[in-house]
């Protein structure tokens, strides 16, 4: 019960901080919008397969920027303060849930804008594509949260974050692109069930490993 209460408080704190500054949300939104616009200016019209790949590449870089700040931007002093107040398990759960919510919101807005600029392929299955993007934002959130914790403890931020997270995110990204491509091509939904299961399994795996390892990482 204690844990659930702590998680709730921490998520509330994150949201409040975000709401006051609106830095991450607006910054990343502007980032996504301008990237999509630059892509529009350079591509004008695109094929189905490029449509899908481009969306995931934009989302990959946007989510690295959005999630990386969860640990990297906090000062050492605040880390110490949080350490004295709550259990590490509560912290990683709260951060992951908050980042997942942030990413889901961000991805959906990005998808909406992306569909406005580049039309969604006519043969596509929009509902399936939305499921794929939600799954994708969940995986980005779980993996990047843990990696940003590792990078922030290692002491030098952005560069390390990219080096450490890309090899880990690539397998998930490949699965997601495959799943999303099925949706764009409008294949029958039963074809994609295996991939959905696979992404879910990888997510659960990452989450379980993070929960086990984070307490060791958090204690200095």
């Amino acid at each position: 019960m204690q844990l659930a209460k702590q998680v709730k408080q921490l998520i509330r704190k994150e949201m409040l901080l975000e709401w006051r500054s609106k830095y991450a949300l607006n910054g990343v939104l502007l980032y996504v919008v301008s990237t999509v616009f630059v892509c529009y200016l350079s591509f004008i019209s695109i094929e189905k397969i490029t449509w899908n790949a481009l969306f995931w590449i934009i989302m990959l870089f946007a989510s690295i920027n959005a999630v990386a700040k969860s640990f990297l931007q906090e000062s050492k002093g605040r880390h110490l303060y949080i350490y004295t107040l709550v259990s590490p398990t509560a912290l990683i759960i709260a951060k992951t849930i908050y980042n997942s919510l942030l990413m889901i919101g961000l991805t959906l807005i990005a998808l909406l804008f992306y569909c406005l600029v580049f039309e969604f392929p006519e043969t596509g299955d929009l509902l399936m594509y939305i499921i794929a993007t939600v799954l994708g934002s969940l995986s980005f959130a779980t993996i990047f949260t843990m990696v940003s914790a590792i990078a922030s403890k290692a002491g030098n931020g952005g560069m390390l974050m990219a080096v450490l997270s890309f090899p880990i995110i690539i397998p998930v990204l490949i699965l997601l692109i495959k799943l999303a491509k099925n949706a764009v091509d409008g294949l029958d939904r039963s074809v994609s069930l295996d991939d959905i299961g696979m992404v879910a399994i990888v997510n659960v795996l990452v989450m379980a490993v993070s929960l086990l390892l984070f307490p060791f990482l958090w204690r200095d």
Binding site: I150, L205, V209, L217
Partner: peptide, 13 residues
């Protein structure tokens, strides 16, 4: 400590 954590994290991947 940190590299051990990354190593364990990377192995399932």
């Amino acid at each position: 400590k940190i590299s051990a954590i990354y190593n364990i994290f990377a192995f399932p991947m």
